[in-house]
Design a binder for these strands. Sequence first.
DNA 1: AATTACGACAACCGCCTCTCA
DNA 2: TTGAGAGGCGGTTGTCGTAAT
Length: 289
Amino acid sequence: MGRSPCCDKASVKRGPWSREEDAILRNFVRRFANAGNWITLPQKAGLNRCGKSCRLRWLNYLRPALRHGGFTDEEDSLILSLYGDIGSRWSVIAAKLPGRTDNDVKNHWNTKLKKRYYSLTAAPSTPPTGGDAVASADSPHGVDQSSLPPPPPAMVNLGAALATLDDGGELTRESEQLYAELMGLIEPQSTTRESTGEVMSSPSSFGTSPTASSFAAGSSATWPVDVHDTILWPESSGSGTVEFDDPCVAHTFGPASTPDSFQDLLASSYDEVIATQELLYLGMNWSEF
DNA sequence: AATTACGACAACCGCCTCTCA
DNA sequence: TTGAGAGGCGGTTGTCGTAAT
């Protein structure tokens, strides 16, 4: 009994992704967005990978406008606060942090914040157990508490330790402010792609948050790609960014978009891909914005 | 210089939920 | 209504780089 596996684990490649695989996956998703599914993607793209692995790679690493590492104090506080509120619902927490993935948040928690969290909650000033009254009165942040499991006991005292939020709407305001500040850092750098004259779309085209939550409501048969996709590429001067507004992202699979046509496309443009997108992407100093 | 310990993060695993026929 | 397929999610493991010994 049991469900059938999504792929033949014995025949697909596992482990770290190569730059070539990244380039193939990125270009395939960007060019053939809004149709297809992850399970069939590897076959269509010519990748010897599990569909789930492709999805994870895209969502956690290749997706535009992601930020890796360099968590700010504000982000740390937000994560600690949210963990106190809702526990290890990393996707929900990540949705409050623009550009962060649940995996990133989870890793950051496991490596750094967990110790900090428990050192705070285990501090001598922390009252012993029995903060029930405080906990029961604490449902401030726009989260449907009735649908959530009881918060971890440690959260009862975390609010005082962090002093970042303690009344209704504060968390939302804080996260929105954080996002606005982040976008403010990015927006002044926006420019026009010189070679084509394409006008950059504003980062605000992402909506409220370019995180996994943005895609959650989409059709299950679509790639999780924003139509006005934006990538922040470093320019040779080191200042500003270049937007990659790919008109192909809205293309769908069809007679004219067979795997063969993609392979042809790939073969003809692979050198360019490596020379431009891939190297620039790898060279991006993500901590700058 | 070699070895060990540790931190950071990428990737995998398996279960759950959702969608659709 | 139900079952299969696909996506989503959280926990865990693996790998690599670096600091400490």
